[in-house]
Design a protein around this nucleic acid. Structure first.
Lengths: 155, 155
DNA sequence: CTAAATATTTCAGTGGCTAAAGTATATAAT
DNA sequence: ATTATATACTTTAGCCACTGAAATATTTAG
């Protein structure tokens, strides 16, 4: 029993981390419903919006969805004008997906804005140095989680 | 433009936060697959395991699922021996769900263990004070997200 | 002691997902 | 050049978890 104290610190930290994670999941589902999307579609839209443009195949890799599911996803998001299909000139098998950032923002921003303000206010209670500490944790934990994901999916 | 600098800090912070969130989603799906569960069932099992026991109705409130979906969820998790139904003595309409922590741990712990070790190692690179800073962020951000969820679901 | 309320399950229908077959286009081999 | 193979996406059939509503069982209220 040489480190009861730090075990306890870690345990408390894990509890907080878990609460954060659970809260995040439910919030994103609530946002999705409010925006008239399924939780899945909202999640994948978020990933797609991080790109200027990408092919249907890229979306399949990015999301882990099969080709058929990607076609359906693009159909649904396209019908809502959140992205559009565009045929590629140099390889006409390919379908370029171009997110419509304006419409997406118009849909999501009003829902997000309260949250963003509150988060900004929360960040104001931390020093610049502290924010960087949290940021480092996020970045390094994300690397660990991505490694874990890759291990699990390969083996 | 009186706060270009802090805008930039916040923007970088948000990027890190987003990466963390995305990584978390994919990892949990990968863990679920590995454990032979759907992403949904894994997510809800995690919530259920945080309780000693609870009724089917409690699970419905906790997860936001309809009654019918909860019956299916309990059936699937029950078949895998991760929880059991137990009839309530004082109100025989109720079904008490008792998670089987031992079997759940047996299933999930091997998958989690690498991650936990890595996270512990990562935490070792932060001072106790810094860990508390991150923990405070988690706790307060979770409160904000839960408020946001409640607002979205009520209105 | 019946009526209304509550807790859960069952059922029918919906929709996104996978896997596989189909279509179109591009690349490689002879 | 022509044919075979590979690649990119869509379509299709079947599956499974979800919703909403009806059914069942039990408790509480009038």
């Amino acid at each position: 029993m040489n480190n009861n104290k730090s075990d306890n610190i870690i345990q408390q930290f894990r509890m907080a981390s878990r609460k954060y994670s659970d809260a995040s999941i439910f919030m994103h589902e609530a946002i999705a419903r409010k925006a008239g999307l399924t939780g899945s579609d909202h999640k994948y839209l978020g990933l797609i919006l991080q790109h200027e443009q990408l092919t249907a195949g890229d979306i399949s890799k990015l999301t882990g969805l099969t080709g058929g599911a990607v076609t359906g996803l693009i159909d649904r998001l396209g019908k809502k004008k959140l992205l559009k299909r565009q045929s590629s000139k140099d390889d006409r098998r390919k379908v370029i997906i171009v997110p419509n950032m304006e419409n997406s923002m118009k849909l999501l921003q009003p829902i997000f804005s309260g949250l963003q303000q509150k988060t900004t206010d929360l960040l104001a209670t931390f020093s610049e140095r502290e924010i960087k500490v949290i940021e480092r944790y996020f970045n390094e934990a994300a690397i660990i989680m991505n490694e874990t994901t890759n291990n699990l999916n390969s083996k």
